[in-house]
Computed example of a mutant assay.
Amino acid sequence: MTLRTQRPRPGFTLIEILVVVSILAVLAVASAPYIAGIAAAARLRTAADTVQNRLLEAQSLAILFNTDAELRLYEVEDLLGGRPTLRKLRILTLRPPEYETPATTTTDAFEPVGAMTSLDLEIEISADAVHSSIIDLGFQDSTADIYGRYIALRFHSDGSPALQPAKPWFLTLHEKDAHLRDKKLQNFVTLQIDPATGRLRTFQP
């Protein structure tokens, strides 16, 4: 009777496994910044789409109800004690004259439409006039608005924005505090607003 020699089963040695794990670790570390950049760009794109949709909605409501409408961009306090940032939005429409009273103020004449919209906590609308010329419209600090200071982008009943025609108007979204870390923004989305028609254009590097 012949005894057969049992061949060793194919497998990986400990050294081979360690080499593979090391290579995977190096690849993961090397690709982390790239993956983080993709995630940041996606957050920015989503936030920009949100702002653009709210602007289009305010313009459409102004035309639909034949009245003025505003998109208000609110300054929000940082719960961790940091600086306030622009990242909340709300649409309001002007009440028809027949509903106004002698005691009604300009702010009181506007009524909110829908819920407040909040951008991602890691995204902000730049409050620097270099990056967002809408800051030149000035902050409104009305006690009648419980949400605090805001920038108002107004549309008339024909859909045209209440913006100075000879000036370029735009707003820029970027990662929170990005302008404080770098002199030149690397990752951002800019929305341009045509002062005559309200048409929007976006730019993202």
Score class of each variant (00 low, 15 high):
9 R>Y: 11
14 L>S: 14
14 L>D: 15
15 I>K: 09
16 E>Y: 03
17 I>A: 05
17 I>Q: 01
18 L>F: 04
19 V>T: 13
19 V>G: 12
20 V>H: 02
21 V>Y: 10
23 I>P: 09
24 L>T: 07
24 L>S: 05
24 L>N: 05
26 V>K: 03
27 L>T: 09
27 L>E: 01
28 A>F: 06
28 A>Q: 02
29 V>I: 10
30 A>L: 08
31 S>F: 10
32 A>P: 01
32 A>D: 00
32 A>V: 02
35 I>Q: 12
36 A>Q: 12
36 A>P: 06
39 A>W: 14
39 A>N: 14
39 A>P: 11
40 A>H: 12
40 A>M: 11
42 A>F: 04
45 R>G: 00
46 T>Q: 08
47 A>R: 01
47 A>F: 05
48 A>P: 03
48 A>R: 02
48 A>G: 08
49 D>F: 13
50 T>K: 09
50 T>C: 02
51 V>R: 04
52 Q>V: 15
55 L>N: 09
57 E>K: 12
58 A>S: 09
60 S>F: 11
60 S>P: 07
61 L>V: 13
64 L>H: 15
65 F>C: 06
66 N>M: 11
67 T>N: 01
68 D>A: 10
70 E>A: 03
75 E>S: 06
75 E>K: 07
75 E>H: 01
76 V>Q: 14
77 E>A: 13
78 D>C: 06
78 D>H: 09
79 L>N: 04
80 L>F: 15
81 G>P: 02
82 G>T: 00
83 R>S: 15
85 T>Q: 13
85 T>W: 04
87 R>Y: 00
87 R>L: 06
89 L>H: 06
89 L>T: 00
89 L>V: 01
90 R>W: 01
92 L>W: 14
93 T>I: 12
94 L>C: 09
